[in-house]
Amino acid sequence: MKVLHVITGLAAGGAEQQLRAQLPYMRADCEVAVLTGSGVVAEAIEASGVPVHRVDMRGNRDLRALGRLARLMRAGRYEVVHTHLYRACVYGRLAARLANVPAIVATEHSIGKELIEGRRITRPVRALYLASELLGHVTVAVSPTVADRLATWGIPRSRIVVIANGVDARAFRYDPRLRERTRDALGLPREAFVVGGVGRLEPGKRFDLLVEAMLGLDDTFLLLVGAGSRRLQLENLARALGVDRRVIFAGESPDTRAMLSAMDVLAAPSQEETFGLAIVEALAAGLPVLYDTCPAVDDLPRDAAPGARRVTPGRLGAELKEMASTRPSRLTPPGAVRLYDIRHQVDQLEALYRRLLGAPGNEERR
């Protein structure tokens, strides 16, 4: 079975890292097509031996990229095209139709109440998404929360399959020696208490709340891992508050395990999450987690993730101050991590591919 994964970009974001994590466990012959700039995740995927095709899309209205993508699909004779993220879903599903690909799957990673991948959900954005959805065969929702939102948009439940994101617990296992090396490389004192934030530096992640919390946390450091349009604003905020010496911007990192090993707590103040992959990865690393929204935890029984606690923005600073004074020890990865084992996720995805390819009249489905 030959599969082409189409994704908008390959910088270090949740959907991108999830694709990277899946590929080593897939039995199918997989390749990746990236529409826009690639980044560290593309390099890591190529280093693992998986081909990455760069479509070099110049903007949202670059229709020539559609032709290049369709030609790639025809030449590659892919049996399955699996799209990820908004722009890739819009262009990838249409290109797959033009190339007569037998099975077209999309994964919805980041549809929120008001935002989809950081952009405001306007009527045109929603209409284009729904029109492109009709060109595929099934949409995978990464959580029941996402499935409910898709259904609210008007997508029939019969076209939605819930397959949760997966985590390879071994890939995030805490390593005290790696912790020391990473702290040394980042200029973090070995004995300091370090609050971590992982994700795109965009408004929806609300990392400004973490920078502001540093004002009341003497001798505590903040480690932000990720890139995005808000970096300069966050740097200016840290400087204005006089905490810039204690806020470390690590940028994109292909080694999430090293970054999580360097932290003492992960804080995730985002109000709009469709899964919360960074939170599950942090739990796999034995970190306590303070979060605002996380379907990956909230959709489970209460005792499945005892290390993760929901904290309102107004309480975040006080909770972090308490943790900095008590220095909680590293935790044993909870049951939630086992429930989201990436091998189980990949098995479900490949079973879905086989079902679509084996369904009679698949090419006639809307």
Rank of each mutant, 00 (worst) to 15 (best):
T122D: 10
G276C: 06
I163T: 12
E235I: 01
A21D: 15
E79Y: 00
P176L: 04
A185R: 08
L331M: 14
R157F: 05
G276N: 11
P124K: 02
G49R: 10
V247K: 09
E133Q: 13
A44I: 05
Q271G: 13
R354F: 09
P328D: 03
R190I: 01
A106D: 12
V146S: 03
M263C: 06
A47T: 13
G216S: 08
A308F: 06
L85H: 12
G9H: 13
E252N: 08
A258I: 01
F172V: 01
L188A: 06
A262S: 08
R126G: 03
R61Q: 07
R120H: 13
D56L: 09
P24E: 10
A103Y: 07
A88E: 08
V105W: 04
G276K: 03
I111M: 04
E46F: 02
I7A: 07
R309K: 06
R74A: 05
V337A: 01
L94I: 11
R366L: 14
L316E: 03
T220P: 00
R230V: 00
L94P: 02
G14Y: 11
G118S: 07
D341S: 13
R181L: 15
Q345V: 14
A12I: 03
A96P: 01
E364V: 08
N100Y: 03
V81A: 12
A151H: 07
V55I: 15
G361H: 06
L237K: 01
A33W: 04
R206E: 15
T182N: 08
S329Q: 14
F249W: 11
S261F: 07
R366D: 08
Y25K: 13
L63H: 06
V146R: 04
P176K: 04
L135W: 09
E202T: 13
G67I: 04
A164H: 14
M26N: 04
R327C: 03
F207H: 09
A169G: 09
L4Q: 00
A227C: 06
R181V: 12
G216Q: 10
A12L: 05
F221N: 06
D175M: 05
D208K: 01
T8C: 05
S132A: 15
G317R: 15
R119E: 11
P333L: 08
L357K: 09
P333I: 13
M1T: 13
A33Y: 03
C294Q: 07
L234R: 01
A88Y: 02
T139L: 14
G13Y: 07
P288V: 06
K2E: 10
Q17L: 10
R64A: 10
T274D: 15
A238P: 11
G14S: 07
V32T: 04
G199L: 05
R310Y: 09
A305V: 06
M26S: 09
I111V: 12
A28I: 01
L266V: 13
H344T: 15
A258S: 14
E202K: 02
L186K: 05
G251Q: 11
T326F: 12
A296S: 03
D244S: 14
P295E: 00
R170D: 15
V105G: 12
A227L: 05
G228P: 01
S143V: 00
G154I: 10
P301E: 14
L10C: 11
V211Y: 00
Q22E: 15
V125C: 02
G112I: 02
P254S: 13
G335M: 10
R93P: 09
L178F: 00
E180V: 10
